[in-house]
Design a binder for these strands. Structure first.
Length: 278
DNA sequence: TCCTCCCTGTTC
DNA sequence: GAACAGGGAGGA
């Protein structure tokens, strides 16, 4: 379940393995793993310039072909890993993984593999046109690590939905999933089902700080590996060892020692402390 | 604003 | 052999 810290880690580890290489071949092994109007072949003979991230989307940027690129110019590839998506670079003579959905042949002889057991993830070729018509892209909220406390609070203030539902809503803030929603709400002392309009500005600003802290700590730990997530180099992250509530239902609260509560909030499994969060 | 569905491997 | 994991689209 790659969220912001995991996608950021993948971008950082993938970058040195693909930058400067030209895409010489493409293979789409599962038709539904490609989203949007442009085929993967539009990426052929283009050189990778950089690897970035926006929300939970991993972005592979291509070098421009001319000084004044046309509107139809392909600029890169967006990858949404959803729950089980992975990106690996491997030598050409290595056997492809069991759940390979797309393979890119690189000019250094290696291959970039998009592997996705549950087929929820997707690739989307980017151009100015395919971005401007992409609703999900256009509606993405601000990056939580690039938003100040006042702007963050303003996106929650007065709203009737549960705090957890808003944290998970990518149009409110981009990049937060189930793990970091629960972890940041615990650190801020806010119960997940609390309506946003019931939460004071001071507490919203506390949540802003808690979310930034937990995201920074997770990035430093190379993300959280529950089962599927790996860096582009195949390594597991370490932040799962620092979870205070996620996956700890029925265990003792690290703060007060009481038993952590579990349930469903915003349609997602949720863990919190009824004593420390309100 | 909230619910169901898409997918498959793992766990109970 | 069913429940569960869950991001986001789509519909109520």
């Amino acid at each position: 379940m790659p969220e912001l810290p995991e996608v950021e880690t993948i971008a950082q580890t993938l970058s040195p393995l693909v930058c400067g290489r030209t895409i010489l071949g493409v293979e789409l092994l599962n038709a539904k793993s490609l989203d949007g109007p442009l085929p993967l072949e539009t990426l052929l003979h283009r050189r990778v310039k950089a690897v970035g991230r926006r929300g939970k989307l991993l972005l592979i940027h291509l070098e421009e072909r001319s000084a004044s690129p046309a509107k139809t110019e392909v600029t890169g590839l967006a990858v949404h890993l959803k729950m089980t998506g992975r990106l690996f670079v491997y030598a050409h003579d290595t056997k492809a993984a069991a759940h390979a959905r797309a393979i890119f042949h690189l000019s250094d002889g290696n291959r970039l593999l998009f592997d996705d057991t549950r087929k929820f993830g997707y690739l989307r070729v980017m151009s100015p046109e395919t971005l401007s018509t992409w609703d999900f892209w256009n509606r993405l909220g601000p990056e939580p690590l690039e938003t100040d406390a006042a702007a963050f609070a303003a996106r929650f203030r007065g709203r009737g939905a549960a705090m957890k539902a808003l944290l998970l809503d990518q149009t409110v803030i981009a990049g937060v999933g189930n793990i970091y929603a629960d972890e940041s709400l615990f650190r801020a002392g806010i119960a997940p089902a609390t309506r946003a309009r019931e939460v004071s500005d001071a507490r919203l600003e506390k949540l802003h700080a808690a979310l930034q802290d937990v995201l920074h700590e997770a990035i430093r730990a190379c993300g959280s590996s529950i089962r599927d997530y790996r860096t582009a180099q195949g390594d597991a992250g370490a932040f799962q060892n620092a979870f205070r509530v996620y996956g700890r239902m029925g265990k003792a609260c690290v703060n007060c020692g009481r038993t952590l509560e579990g349930g469903r909030v915003a349609g997602r499994s949720t863990v919190w402390c009824t004593h420390c969060q309100y």
